[in-house]
């Protein structure tokens, strides 16, 4: 068989349960209302960098094309500025849909092509849930080393300035009593849109 120029999408590529799970996530209940007007794509300050515009992500998400939306870079480039969400004429929580898709991508163990944002979120989450507070110095250094090692040295001057101005330190910030937060997190049922939850 000759190489296909364009892949056909079959109904078996769709996962209706996936779409339903997204709709059950907080803020995502209006997903189906979308009329594909593309206000979101037009207003998004980052849509020009995205492999799929937010509009297309919404279309594919509501149709349940799980693999497509979980592998796009759009969800990781979303900077959570909520501009799309407040301008959406159908009041769809587009930023919330992006959050939901990020969670689902992590749930599915997907490592995005543009890995840095996910790495940062993970580092942040781990630090924040472990210590209860974020040590910005540690977070920045870890993220930069893991995702942009080349930039590390170019940031040297900035780092020095931040150290000098007292805005950056090596101290690890912690809650006085971390155990209570850990207990609370452990006792929290997941919010993942699955019907049992």
């Amino acid at each position: 068989m000759a190489t296909l120029e364009r892949e056909i999408r079959f109904e078996s590529d769709r996962d209706p349960e996936f779409a339903a799970q997204i709709r059950r996530m907080p803020g995502c209940e209006n997903l189906n209302r979308c009329i594909q007007c593309a206000t979101c794509s037009g207003i998004c300050p980052l849509s020009t960098y995205m492999d799929m515009t937010p509009r297309r992500v919404i279309q594919l998400a509501r149709d349940g094309f799980k693999a497509d939306v979980l592998n796009c870079n759009t969800i990781w480039l979303c900077a959570s500025c909520y501009q799309c969400q407040v301008e959406c004429p159908k009041e769809i929580g587009i930023t919330d849909v992006m959050y939901a898709l990020k969670c689902k991508a992590i749930e599915a163990g997907i490592k995005p092509k543009q890995a840095a944002p996910q790495t940062l979120y993970r580092e942040f989450y781990n630090l924040g849930t472990k210590n209860g507070r974020i040590s910005e110095g540690a977070l920045m250094v870890n993220t930069v080393i893991k995702t942009q090692p080349a930039r590390f040295w170019s940031l040297k001057m900035l780092g020095l300035r931040l150290l000098r101005t007292g805005r950056f330190g090596w101290k690890i910030e912690r809650m006085p009593q971390q155990s209570v937060l850990k207990a609370a997190i452990q006792a929290t049922p997941p919010i993942n849109g699955k019907e049992s939850s």
Binding site: C103, Y121, Y125, G132, A184, P190
Partner: peptide, 21 residues
């Protein structure tokens, strides 16, 4: 004994803990 609000990161990883925090 306040804790990190979770920022945009918690929300992108696990939403249950994100809201609890």
């Amino acid at each position: 004994n306040w804790n990190c609000c979770g920022a945009t990161s918690f929300m992108s990883i696990e939403q249950g803990p994100a809201y609890t925090c």
